[in-house]
């Protein structure tokens, strides 16, 4: 798919900053969750006969889950994203405008505390919520698909992971070791899990 003009991404970030000034961090979190859900719900549902057919669609960019990012399956259940779909916008923002407004981190901290500890910045709230809502629109065989984030690494190198036991369980379900996760996070922006619900 054609890339967006990063100016639109920058304007959207400023839009969110202005919104946060009115509704606060909790209100911004609600808006981000709502916009990501609405986006997923506006997109067509999908069905696949088998998990391997679904993986091929993910790999080829044909699935709702690979519309905005290049997905590379690591195992049958573990997915990785090479570059965050927000990276270009972030780089352009940093180059043309300056450092990100603190509210983007503040809302991520709120989300980590209230929902699950996997966001470094505001855009991860959009990404996680979108993937979760999008996965629920996919059926493989007779079963719907469930999404869970494993780890997110932001452009500045900051990594957000769940705590010990929760991480262990996720890695076991994803079929990768902690060492493999560390290797993936050197040059991938996200590692996530898809499994039959």
């Amino acid at each position: 798919m054609q890339d967006s003009n990063p100016f639109v991404d920058i304007a959207t970030h400023l839009f969110l900053e202005d919104l946060a000034g009115k509704v606060g961090v909790a209100g911004l979190n609600n808006y981000l969750v709502s916009l990501a859900r609405n986006l997923a719900e506006a997109m067509p549902r999908e069905e696949y006969a088998s998990w391997s057919e679904f993986l091929a669609a993910l790999r080829d960019g044909q699935s709702i889950l690979s519309t905005f990012e290049e997905v590379r399956p690591v195992t049958d259940r573990c997915m990785s994203t090479l570059r965050s779909p927000f990276e270009r916008g972030w780089r352009e923002y940093a180059k043309r405008v300056g450092s990100f407004a603190p509210v983007h981190r503040e809302v991520a901290a709120y989300y980590n505390h209230k929902v699950r500890p996997t966001a470094v910045t505001s855009v991860h709230i959009v990404l996680h919520t979108f993937r979760e809502a999008a996965a629920a629109r996919v059926r493989v065989g007779d079963a719907p698909v469930r999404y869970e984030p494993v780890a997110a690494a932001w452009v500045d190198g900051e990594v957000q992971l769940p705590d010990g036991p929760k991480l262990e369980s996720l890695l076991k379900r994803a079929g990768i070791s902690p060492t493999k996760l560390g290797m993936l996070l050197r040059n991938h922006s996200e590692v996530w899990l898809l499994e039959p619900a």
């Binding site: 967006s4 003009n5 639109v8 991404d9 959207t12 970030h13 839009f15 202005d18 919104l19 808006y31 709502s34 916009l35 990501a36 609405n38 986006l39 506006a42 519309t67 905005f68 990012e69 779909p85 927000f86 916008g89 855009v123 959009v126 990404l127 979108f130």
Partner: peptide, 26 residues
């Protein structure tokens, strides 16, 4: 993807503040 999602945000805001509110906001 945030650019595509922006339309959903604007839909939400129209419900709350009307199209004129979104114009002022933009």
């Amino acid at each position: 993807m945030i650019d595509v999602a922006l339309a959903s945000l604007i839909e939400d805001m129209i419900e709350k503040a009307g199209a004129e509110g979104v114009v002022e906001f933009w």
